[in-house]
Simulated scan of single mutants.
Amino acid sequence: MRRIAGPAGVMAGIIAAFGYVGSVDPNQPGHYPVCPLLRLTGIYCPGCGGLRSAHAVAHGDIAAAFGSNALAVIGYGIFAVLWVGWMVRAAAGKPVRITLKPVHWWGIGAVLLIFTVVRNLPFGSVLAP
């Protein structure tokens, strides 16, 4: 049990966060702060719509989640795969090592930048929340 305490604790935190966002609707004004970038510039950041996406996932509406923030839903999937790998390795008593090289970080940054730019252009409005 001690070996899986880390992944189990992280999953408990994720479940609590999704439970809260699932019960307190971000579609209703006044519950969560507005994105400062959106408020000051009118530009959607890569995280805009993330709470609405999490709310939709908590309610099992994957289509609405993709409509709110497709990148966040993909991130939820990547997290799930990594978490399962972590849990399996922890249960087997093997250490987990995820090392990202600078090229990986640059790739992540490029994806975030491209997503941000495209969702703010007229032809990419389908990606806007």
Rank of each mutant, 00 (worst) to 15 (best):
residue 1 M to T: 05
residue 1 M to A: 07
residue 2 R to D: 14
residue 3 R to P: 03
residue 6 G to T: 10
residue 8 A to S: 11
residue 8 A to F: 04
residue 9 G to K: 01
residue 9 G to R: 01
residue 14 I to T: 10
residue 15 I to S: 12
residue 15 I to E: 07
residue 16 A to L: 14
residue 18 F to V: 12
residue 18 F to D: 12
residue 21 V to M: 02
residue 22 G to Q: 01
residue 24 V to D: 06
residue 24 V to G: 11
residue 25 D to H: 00
residue 25 D to E: 03
residue 25 D to R: 02
residue 25 D to Q: 02
residue 27 N to I: 03
residue 28 Q to D: 06
residue 30 G to Q: 14
residue 30 G to L: 12
residue 30 G to F: 04
residue 30 G to R: 08
residue 32 Y to A: 07
residue 32 Y to S: 12
residue 33 P to H: 05
residue 34 V to T: 08
residue 34 V to K: 04
residue 35 C to R: 04
residue 37 L to Q: 03
residue 39 R to V: 04
residue 39 R to A: 15
residue 42 G to E: 05
residue 43 I to L: 08
residue 44 Y to L: 09
residue 46 P to G: 13
residue 47 G to V: 00
residue 48 C to G: 05
residue 48 C to I: 01
residue 50 G to D: 10
residue 52 R to T: 05
residue 52 R to L: 01
residue 52 R to A: 07
residue 57 V to G: 00
residue 58 A to N: 11
residue 59 H to W: 05
residue 59 H to C: 06
residue 60 G to E: 07
residue 60 G to Y: 00
residue 62 I to T: 11
residue 64 A to H: 02
residue 64 A to W: 02
residue 65 A to Y: 01
residue 66 F to Y: 03
residue 66 F to R: 05
residue 66 F to C: 09
residue 67 G to E: 13
residue 68 S to A: 06
residue 68 S to G: 00
residue 69 N to Q: 02
residue 70 A to M: 04
residue 71 L to S: 04
residue 73 V to L: 00
residue 73 V to I: 05
residue 74 I to F: 08
residue 77 G to T: 09
residue 79 F to Y: 15
residue 80 A to E: 07
residue 80 A to Q: 06
residue 81 V to C: 14
residue 81 V to F: 13
residue 82 L to N: 09
residue 82 L to W: 10
residue 83 W to K: 07
residue 84 V to L: 14
residue 86 W to V: 06
residue 86 W to F: 04
residue 90 A to W: 00
residue 90 A to S: 15
residue 90 A to C: 10
residue 91 A to H: 04
residue 94 K to A: 13
residue 94 K to Y: 08
residue 94 K to H: 10
residue 95 P to W: 08
residue 96 V to H: 05
residue 96 V to T: 12
residue 96 V to G: 07
residue 97 R to G: 08
residue 99 T to A: 15
residue 100 L to C: 12
residue 100 L to Q: 03
residue 101 K to N: 15
residue 102 P to M: 15
residue 102 P to F: 14
residue 103 V to P: 04
residue 105 W to T: 13
residue 106 W to N: 14
residue 107 G to R: 03
residue 109 G to F: 08
residue 109 G to A: 13
residue 109 G to W: 09
residue 112 L to D: 13
residue 113 L to Y: 02
residue 115 F to S: 10
residue 117 V to F: 03
residue 118 V to A: 06
residue 119 R to C: 07
residue 120 N to C: 02
residue 120 N to S: 04
residue 121 L to M: 13
residue 121 L to G: 09
residue 122 P to Q: 01
residue 123 F to S: 09
residue 123 F to A: 14
residue 124 G to C: 06
residue 126 V to G: 07
residue 126 V to R: 01
residue 128 A to Y: 01
residue 128 A to T: 05
residue 129 P to L: 02
residue 129 P to T: 10
